[in-house]
Each structure stands twice: as C-alpha cells, then as structure tokens.
Write a protein that binds this DNA or RNA. Structure first.
Lengths: 190, 190
DNA sequence: GGTACAAGTTGCCGTTGTCAACATCAGGAC
DNA sequence: GTCCTGATGTTGACAACGGCAACTTGTACC
C-alpha cells in the first residue's frame, strides 16, 4: 500500500485503530493524534470524518452496540437458552474489550439527538434483547418485556464490571454470581 | 479566610473541589489545574498531596466507596427492608453524583495494592452489603452471601446506569425495572 | 533562636485538542 | 483533453493540560 495523499478509508481506519488502542493501551486513554500517527496520517486528518474527539468516542460506542446486536442475534439462532448464550457471549466480549463495553455503558447520551447513529444502534440492540426475553418467557405485554430486558442488561453489565475488578479478595472470580443463571431468572420474571 | 502561603487543608479541599466539578461540569472531565485554580492555589500544589491525576481519581473513588458504606449502614438501622432502603438510596446517590458512582464502578483496580486506601474502602462497602443480605435472608454460607451481595451490587449499578440514559424511547423511566424489588429477590436467592 | 522538613510557588517541557489556511486529488461539465 | 469544484489531507499555530525541577515560605521541634 503506497502512501498516497488521500487515504481513502480513513474513517473506518480511525475507528479500528482507536478501538485497538482501547483494547491494548495500558491506561485506556485514546489520543486523536496518536491514533492518526499510528495510521500514518496527519494529526488533523480525522477531523474530516469526525466532529472531534467526542465524535470518535460516540462512533466507538455505536460500534459496540452493533456488536452487541450481532451477539444477540447469534444467540437467538442457537439451540438451547438464548439468554444463557447471550450471557456467555457478553462476558466474553467484556473480557476482550472491557473499555469498549465500559464506554457503551457509561456514555451519556442524555442530550443527544434521538435520530443519531449511536442512539439508533442502542435501540436496535435493545430490541434484540427484548426478542431474546420473549424467546425465553413467551409473549409478554410490551412494558413487561422491556422491563425484563432492561433488568438483564443491567445484570450483564453490572456483573461484567464486577468481574473487571479481578483478582483476589471478596470479589474474586469464584465468588461472583452466575450471570447466565441470574439473567434467565430475570427473563422469566422470577 | 485570608490567603496564606500555606493553605493547610489542601488535600480535602482538592477532593471536594474535584468532586464538585464531577457533579457540575458539563463534560465531566476534571483538570488538575482547573481544580487548583478554583481553590486559589498554584497548579502544582496538589502534587504535594497526590502522586498525580490518577491519584486524585483514586481518592475520589475511595470517597465514593465510603459514602456507599455509610448509606448501607444507615439502611441497616432503618425499620423495614434494608435492601429496599439501600436500593432507594443508591438510586438517589446516582442521581446526585452519577459520575462519581460511574468512577466507582469503572475504575480498574486490578493492578492495585490490596492494602491501598481504595481497595480497603471497597472491601468495607462490600462487607456492609453482605450484612444487608444476611439481614434479608438470614444467616448463609459465606460464599453464597458473597454471591448474592455481588448480584445486588451489579443490579444496583446496572439499573442506575440504564437510568442514566434518561429520557424517551425504549429506556424511558417508566419502563425500567424496579431496582428495589429485583434487589430483594437477589438477596433471597430467588 | 536556629534549623530541618513540609507545603506552595514559579518556570519549563512535551503532548494534546482544535482552528485556520493551504495543498492535493478525483470526477463531471464543457 | 481541460478546467473547476468539492472532498480529503497537510502544515502551522495556539491555549490548556499533566508533570518535573528548582526555588521560597512557613512551621514545629530541639
């Protein structure tokens, strides 16, 4: 790949590189400049594709949501409990990219446009989650299905965070609750 | 209060100011310099009390844990379900200082000294949580009590985060699960 | 009263996010 | 083929940041 003046696919390259930093860097901070440097492009090039650093993190969050949606859809196709499969995959995803999922959970979208990419991606993920609840519990009043889906998400995210503390002490791996089991109970409203 | 060369209580002042920024600032970022400026002290003064910016955020997390412990202990003294009281207070705390609790949940203490202030504070909070579980469910095997306590924490943190998304759509307030009810079930192992 | 040490200060450095102005390329109008 | 226009990258600059070093001021203890 020759160095041409125009990179061509900078947007996806930036997102991929940023995601990689998130995965590998020690402190989990991402620097726009460092990302650009890693791609071999000038510091300001990303500004042609993102309104700023915040824009990049929002894009990353959207990426995370899309991946979650894919995970949920895959879980539905599997034989056996979709909820349990989802829980297992959520945990695996967290282990691989904890900071990305942390971003997904913590990002504040309160003031954001409901039509924005990230909010749409979140809604799709949540819809997939609702489908999984109904697969486990049968048809439900919409409000109840939403509530159970939210409970499951809260559980998966919360347990994953706890697992993130890692290591010894009162929160060591063997003393953590079984996310799959808790999620199934939540799906059934128990 | 005259401006003297020696502030005297800079450490607590810095923590309080930083916590305040966390509560009030729009983006939730804290700058060591801005904090120092707000207190009326030079940019480098805080370095006499904290090893660096990370040190400050760790101190903030410890502060958060201590507050959680106090909440848990208060919940135990109340008449009625301690778990329910805890859930209510946790939610209130989140509404007031979402970023502080986000920090508590997301901070990565994996590599940290088990004797460090923040890990000790976390253990105290968790111990208080275990006491609440036993108040609700009676005496339990230690491992089981730990698991239920962890489940409750995960639920409270997860639901609070979801609530943080705020506003309309599939995750609007009225469609969120009742944290208190879920927590009680978790405490009873149901 | 003198002195060692803690607590604050100023000066400085490299890095970062972002703005403004300029350069380069690709593709359609003629 | 030529020209022009918009999208895409580049360079240069700026203020703010985190952090180091060296200096100054106050305090507490002998």
């Amino acid at each position: 790949m020759q160095r041409t003046y125009h990179h061509g696919k900078l947007k996806v390259a930036v997102i991929a590189a940023a995601r990689d930093r998130l995965r590998t860097s020690a402190d989990g901070e991402i620097s726009l400049r460092e990302v650009a440097r890693g791609i071999g492009v000038s510091a300001n090039a990303p500004y042609r594709h993102f309104p700023g650093k915040d824009g990049l993190t929002v894009a990353l969050a959207a990426e995370g949501y899309r991946e979650l949606t894919a995970i949920a859809e895959r879980a539905l196709l599997q034989r056996g409990s979709a909820v349990a499969a989802l829980a297992a995959e959520y945990s695996r995803f967290w282990q691989e990219e904890p900071r990305l999922l942390g971003l997904v959970g913590s990002e504040n979208f309160a003031g954001r446009d409901p039509e924005s990419e990230v909010v749409l991606a979140r809604d799709e993920w949540f819809a997939a989650l609702v489908a999984i609840v109904e697969e486990e519990a049968g048809r439900l009043p919409a409000a109840e299905a939403y509530r159970r889906a939210a409970a499951i998400w809260a559980l998966l995210q919360g347990v994953a965070q706890l697992r993130g503390f890692g290591g010894r002490g009162l929160l060591s791996e063997s003393l953590l609750p079984d996310a799959a089991e808790l999620a199934r109970k939540a799906a059934r409203g128990r």
